[in-house]
Design a binder for these strands. Structure first.
Lengths: 207, 207
DNA sequence: TATCTTTACGACCGGTCGGTCTTTTTGTTA
DNA sequence: TAACAAAAAGACCGACCGGTCGTAAAGATA
């Protein structure tokens, strides 16, 4: 940081590298990510990357943090802007779908791709990815629990099971990013919420 | 093939290589698959592989075929052994879950991993994987359509949407292969079928 | 047993990878 | 402008990759 408060040169480089690395990692895989390609794509030297991160592993972990930040800004925060309860639950689902429907970043879902990539490969990265996944599921389950506590869902509804359904529908849209997938993902959750919501007619309509 | 009908030496080697390659590809990725590792794991020479497949790409395509054969034997065929209709639809879901619940092959789902790996990488392999995925969805949709035609599902039920739900629940179990996932995946489909089936009490109970 | 085809081996090549090291440039502050 | 620290550059290394080629072994046939 400089005296005038503007971003230092190094900081600008770091975010530029992370942006580029996130895209490349989403396409080529987090492990298939090549530092040479990242450097070439930005027109910088590969050795310079090691001035900012000690190793490829550190850069990979930084990319995960970067992706989570993006996810927080574009999905979680907008959902939290909705009133707690079924509406917030729907918003979490809808914003996630919108995030990938819009193709904000190419190559599909970074977390989904990385999660499948490291599913069977124990290590720091898999643990970190599992944490992120767990945090997301906890968030969904928490919103569902809120809805239950607010009396918007039938007693006996299992928040974790509801969160699981939302997650499943979301993952599948990433796997098959066709218009029909997004429609089905919205219709399916809508149909399910109609069966567990106290006031089915007060649900947001799936577009 | 020899005169006595037993497998020729080359054929035995080919299947051994494909078995090993399928496991390694599931863990390390279909692209991350290393021919050297395959050869070392089997105690054969790497160059020998090129006597059976012209290139790595050809071996990768052969691995896909190998995986599909396994899938056909262990999931599709048992489902087809059930009577057409809702029961067969349930069997397709249940057998798929059982396949991964049992951990038949380590590293999760080959097709799932490979599909996410090549999601954003155009080429022969992605096209081939898309074909396999499409064939599986067509199968599910066909079974659902049968159930509809047999009058076991409410008129107006969308078979493709139902197939999508089944696929979503299945994919999510692969992503999070915990006992709770399999339970949720069965409960969720059961709950949904109860809302669209003509005779909800005739459904198989989820274990 | 002799022959011949299939199959397997091992040395080797060009290329890319992650990572290290030294040097040069750049931007900020005094 | 001079000095200093941060940042970027570029040559280089060992390891591993997919792939080639000439040669040796193994099994079926006669």
């Amino acid at each position: 940081m400089r005296q005038d408060g503007r971003l230092a040169r190094g900081e600008r480089t770091r975010t530029a590298v992370l942006d580029q690395a996130l895209v490349l990692a989403t396409v080529s895989g987090l492990d298939g990510l090549s530092l040479s390609q990242v450097a070439d794509a930005l027109g910088v030297s590969k050795s310079g990357l090691f001035a900012h991160w000690r190793s490829k592993l550190q850069l990979q972990l930084a990319v995960i943090d970067h992706a989570r930040q993006q996810w927080t800004d574009l999905v979680i925060r907008p959902a939290l802007a909705e009133p707690a309860g079924v509406r917030r639950l729907w918003a979490a689902h809808d914003r996630r779908l919108a995030f990938y429907e819009a193709g904000t970043l190419p190559g599909g879902c970074f977390f989904g791709n990385a999660h499948f990539e490291f599913n069977a490969r124990p290590g720091v990265i898999r643990d970190r990815l599992a944490e992120e996944q767990s945090a997301w599921m906890t968030f969904l389950t928490g919103v569902a629990t809120e809805a239950l506590d607010l009396g918007e869902l039938r007693a006996g509804t299992d928040p974790a099971q509801l969160a699981y359904l939302i997650e499943a529908l979301g993952v599948c849209t990433v796997m098959r990013p066709e218009p029909a997938s997004f429609r089905y993902a919205r219709l399916a959750l809508h149909a399910h919420l109609r069966t567990v919501a106290i006031d089915p007619d007060n649900l947001p309509e799936p577009k």
